[in-house]
Computed example of a mutant assay.
Amino acid sequence: MRIRNLLAVVASALVGAALTPSTAAAAPQQIIGGDTVSSAPWAAAVYSDGSFRCSGSIIASRWVLTAEHCIGGSMSVRVGSVHHATGGQVSAVSATYSQDGYLYDIGLLYLSTPISTTYVTLATSDPPVGSTNTIYGWGRSCLNCDVSAQLKTASVQVVSVRGRDAYEGPAIRSSPATGIAWQGDSGGPQFYAGQQVGVCSNSNGSTSQNYASIAASRAWIAAVAGV
């Protein structure tokens, strides 16, 4: 995920702040805590220049939703496998979309070939404060762990719907329940009541994380992707 001045912050305080896109590509990480996932037909592993970069979700046959700061390079996705390096269906990305001059950390990837699977349902409103939601993502499970081959999940509790994502756009802020998002969970979904409410944007790797609000960008997503 996009954690500012990551190396300096980790060296001084062992917590995260927002990654630049180039750092996100070099050091993908995953949920700290939580559990592995055995099935996620909607899950999308996002690649840049042949390397795993971020998490995402497929919302229609040719559209993957991820974080805007994950966009860059020659991109492709692997959809429907809980293993980011094997299985599922693979498609190149033929076009990318972001909104309002990087004011929201939500991006859309248009696939060169359609993928038939189970698509996520997008929420039209933010989850209530106090709700317990579910997050998903790939990468490392601690500061210095190796990248995990398998998708992870964790529960989080919403503390505010007035957080800010990596580009200062509206975001859902939550604290860890069974785990917390960390770098490279970027673009991964947060679910409430069966619908995706957020896109992973930033985290301090310890006490809180911010997911860009789907509701705040819902009209734009519909206009671009038609869903």
Rank of each mutant, 00 (worst) to 15 (best):
R2M: 06
N5L: 01
A8T: 02
V10E: 00
L14T: 11
L14R: 14
A17Q: 12
A18I: 07
T23K: 09
A26Q: 15
A27I: 15
Q29D: 02
Q29K: 06
G34K: 03
V37F: 10
S38Y: 01
A40S: 08
A40Y: 00
P41M: 03
S51K: 13
F52R: 13
R53V: 11
C54K: 08
I59Y: 07
A60G: 10
L65C: 04
A67V: 06
E68Q: 14
H69L: 06
H69S: 02
C70N: 07
G72T: 08
S76H: 12
H83F: 15
H83D: 15
A85S: 14
A85E: 11
A85N: 14
G87A: 02
G87R: 12
V90I: 15
S91E: 00
L103A: 09
S112N: 14
T113W: 04
S116K: 12
T117I: 09
T117C: 10
T117V: 11
V120T: 09
T121W: 00
T132S: 15
S141D: 08
A154V: 10
V159Y: 11
V161L: 03
G163C: 13
R164K: 14
A166R: 11
E168G: 13
G169M: 06
P176T: 03
T178F: 05
D185E: 14
S186C: 13
P189F: 02
V199Q: 08
V199T: 14
S201C: 09
N202W: 08
S203W: 12
N204S: 04
N204A: 07
S208M: 00
A212L: 07
A212T: 15
A222G: 09
A223V: 10
